[in-house]
Design a protein around this nucleic acid. Structure first.
Lengths: 234, 234
DNA sequence: CGGACTATTGAAGCGTCTCAAAGCTGGTGG
DNA sequence: CCACCAGCTTTGAGACGCTTCAATAGTCCG
């Protein structure tokens, strides 16, 4: 069985096929892990990696800084998500990736991945799927930013995180989102201050509960209702 | 030489390597084209394609409709751009692609692509690069939508289009952008009406000139200046 | 020549930002 | 073990960017 305690390999396996025999080859991959402290960069701006990096545990973010000190967060990366699914990319990163919580990072040298790729071509396909999923998340973000008011954008983001957390971690009901309000605000493109007013409202509605540094989603159902007030047809 | 009159194959060739000998194999690909009228869908919502579709000539858009009748445009596709660079994707589209101008569409069956892929593995790499370029464009869009006011978003979009048009078509100075103001507005997330006020301002500044259905960029330089008033460090 | 689409202009309303300030909470060092 | 400090959260009031609604004008096509 070679249970891959790796979140990344687990996700890879899931994308290939429920029970492909060649999946055993995944165990042969050279995988190392390291711990990244909260707030530190995992992949700095302008870097070119020669390993596949993936989130093993914790939460990270793709982001970019602006000259005025602002910051835009493109998306949050959850356990199993790859920072750079494109094995062949030689161009320097146009953004950075940092740890939102303490992160256990999984690293696989490109060489090792390429060997695997030759043995199991379906891995390439799986990597494509992972990349596609991430761009789908970004499309949803563009959708929200371009067409919805802040209230709905917040609901959309939280709903997205709840859904994605449910698969990576098997969460129980009060879903925990261990991300600062300021960071969440930087993702939906509002001031952390206005974000907070919206959170307060959701708390009053019994949808959320707060604690320093984290949010509890007590009622995902109504979150989705709010989100779908304007959400897309897809 | 087998000059591929195909914009897509040209782009593919460019991404592989300036002068790889195996590039000749690109000519063996099964390529057909068809004409799409302005406004028609190229790839409808929910479809699953078994061919690679690419823009040969003209401009298309990735977009999604909202229940309230609104529309968000994720990005514009220019000659050479692929609608679906992921050969292995079997999941239905979560958005649609339509022709902004009359479009000459290039179609290559997946079978044929896979044959090519086996002969020239670098093609896979090239497809990855194309996908990466598109997500880079989307990241820039998120950046703008989340962090910049409308004036700058407009400058950013127009600057992006000017840059990308310069490579696909060898444009001369008054760069023509044959896209309706209403559509451009739907891309940057403002009312077409407010978009028009910004265009008017840019006209007064001598940056733009207008004509029914198209924009002329007469002074790209100052466009970039405005765009970089807040733009990212990258 | 009529009809449909595109562009343009004005005025009122509101969503969000900005600035300013003050609680809180948890972790750190004394 | 306590005090302090940095980071996170919360609250208020004024300003402004953008939307909305309404209406007119220009331009292409059948």
């Amino acid at each position: 069985m070679s249970t891959p305690s790796s979140a990344f390999l687990k996700q890879l396996r899931k994308m290939i096929h429920p029970s492909d025999p060649r999946i055993g080859a995944l165990g042969d991959v050279v995988l190392s892990t390291s711990l990244i402290a909260r707030g530190r960069d995992i992949v700095p701006l302008g870097s070119t990696e020669r390993r596949v990096l993936a989130i093993g545990e914790g939460i990270a973010m793709r982001y970019r800084l602006l000259p005025d000190g602002g910051r835009q967060i493109f998306m949050f990366l959850l356990p199993g998500d790859a920072c750079n699914p494109n094995l062949f990319n030689a161009t320097p990163m146009d953004h950075a990736i940092a740890a939102v919580t303490p992160v256990r990072l999984e690293q696989i040298p490109h060489d090792s991945m390429l060997v695997l790729l030759k043995k199991v071509p379906e891995v390439n396909q799986a990597l494509w799927s992972m990349a596609d999923q991430q761009t789908a998340v970004m499309r949803d973000r563009i959708m929200g930013l371009g067409r919805c008011d802040a209230r709905i954008r917040v609901a959309l983001l939280l709903w997205e995180l709840v859904m994605r957390l449910r698969v990576s971690e098997a969460q129980v009901m009060p879903v925990v989102i261990p991300i600062t309000q300021a960071l969440l605000a930087d993702a939906v493109g509002v001031t952390h201050i206005h974000f907070n007013r919206i959170v307060s409202e959701f708390c009053r509605l019994g949808i959320l509960a707060t604690q320093r540094g984290r949010l509890f989603v007590t009622n995902p159902r109504s979150l989705q209702v709010i989100a779908s007030e304007i959400t897309c047809a897809a």
